[in-house]
Nucleic acid binder design. Structure first.
Length: 369
DNA sequence: AACACGGGGCT
DNA sequence: AGCCCAGTGTT
């Protein structure tokens, strides 16, 4: 008897994350109506130009709206259409990306622009399947561009949507789990309407960004408050789960600060990996004797001991601890893993692609100059 | 499934 | 001091 009961109970638990057609329809109407009223005026919403939508979506990957806005404006001014971007030098694209992070995105954008021009005659591919083949365009971005720019009825599931829809369907599984992804995707397939699918997807993300926040959702203001399973269950029980992250390793580095006649010695990083393609004062891993030897082989002689000036730069997966050392280099040689070394006039630094870390190093070096 | 990949703002 | 953001690509 208890067996029968638990079997029924189990099926109910599984089924209640399924969104029925009638429930989907009500949900679509409510959230799009809310979006029409509450939508923020963002630069990339002033057009449905696929190129602009695409650029914005790439920039928005793992990056907040407020951070992206000025970069987007500058980028569109500098590269107004896909052909202009395809013609550009990668260094100019990286310069426009300097400080935004995840620099592989800039290389993907540039490579994809060239593909759009060469393979599609500068006309943007219109379907998720074609978009998906472009470098830097994954499942989310393909759905976002296809739905927003071309009206394809495709879901666009980002972190916001995982949380919002996870709560809406009363998902208990951790949002990072395969089970959660499957359930949210199924729900989204049922939810995305054939009419205005792009507005629906944007509405979902907008809701996550402004109302259904991770820690303190404003449920009374939510267009879905009446049918949200998460509210019924208590949001703490839904789509939660602590994500324990391993302690981030600390990496100790020495930066060789070499100045000669108003120019700074910069090294260019290899295209693959951290800060790919960007310039920076040459870095070598500590401890000091090893770094000194590494630099010496490249013709860079450290003056004294590194420090006391130093910079700590925090990344997602490691902390870079950089001590600064002045140095001289009359005939710099190659220095692994950098692709080249060159003196850059200080007046040219703002025109040189560099990471935020590299700019900090330069700024700290010449703070009192 | 886990990890590399930036930077910043909020709690 | 964590958390996590309009994620993607590699291993």
């Amino acid at each position: 008897m208890s067996g029968t009961h638990s079997r029924v109970r189990e099926r109910v638990d599984r089924d209640d994350t399924v969104v029925s057609p009638s429930r989907a329809k009500a949900a679509q109407k409510a959230i799009v109506a809310w979006f029409d009223r509450a939508r923020r005026d963002l630069p990339w919403r002033r057009t449905k130009d696929p190129y602009a939508v695409w650029v914005s979506e790439i920039m928005l990957q793992q990056t907040r709206v407020e951070t992206v806005i000025p970069y987007f404006e500058r980028f569109m001014g500098r590269f107004p259409d896909v052909e202009e971007l395809a013609r550009a030098d990668i260094a100019d694209v990286l310069l426009a990306w300097s400080g935004l992070g995840y620099y592989r995105r800039a290389r993907g954008l540039h490579a994809a622009a060239r593909e759009v021009v060469s393979r599609y005659g500068a006309k943007f591919p219109r379907t998720t399947d074609e978009l998906r083949t472009l470098p830097g365009v994954g499942e989310y971005t393909a759905g976002a561009v296809a739905s927003i720019a071309f009206g394809e009825r495709a879901p666009a599931i980002d972190g916001n949507v995982m949380r919002v829809v996870g709560r809406y369907i009363g998902l208990r599984a951790d949002v990072g789990s395969t089970e959660a992804k499957r359930a949210v995707r199924a729900a989204c397939e049922a939810l995305v309407p054939p009419v205005r699918p792009g507005d629906f997807n944007e509405a979902l993300m907008e809701l996550g960004a402004t109302v259904c926040s991770p820690t303190s959702p404003d449920c009374p203001s939510c267009p879905w408050r009446r049918s949200c399973r998460g509210v019924e269950l208590g949001l703490d029980a839904v789509a939660g789960g602590p994500k324990k992250r391993a302690a981030v390793p600390r990496v100790k580095l020495i930066a060789a600060i070499v100045e000669r006649e108003g120019a700074v010695l910069l090294a260019r990083r290899p295209l693959d990996g951290l800060f790919g393609g960007l310039g920076e004062p040459p870095l070598a891993e500590g401890p000091l004797p090893r770094a000194r030897t590494t630099f010496a082989r490249a013709g860079i002689e450290l003056h004294g001991k590194p420090g006391p000036r130093s910079v700590e730069h925090v990344l997602t997966h490691k902390v870079l601890e950089v001590k600064l050392a002045t140095a001289r280099a009359d005939a710099p040689q190659s220095l692994a893993p950098y692709t080249d070394l060159a003196y850059v006039p200080r007046s040219q630094l703002q025109a040189t692609p560099m990471s935020t870390l590299a700019r900090r190093l330069v700024r700290v070096s010449f703070a009192d100059a």
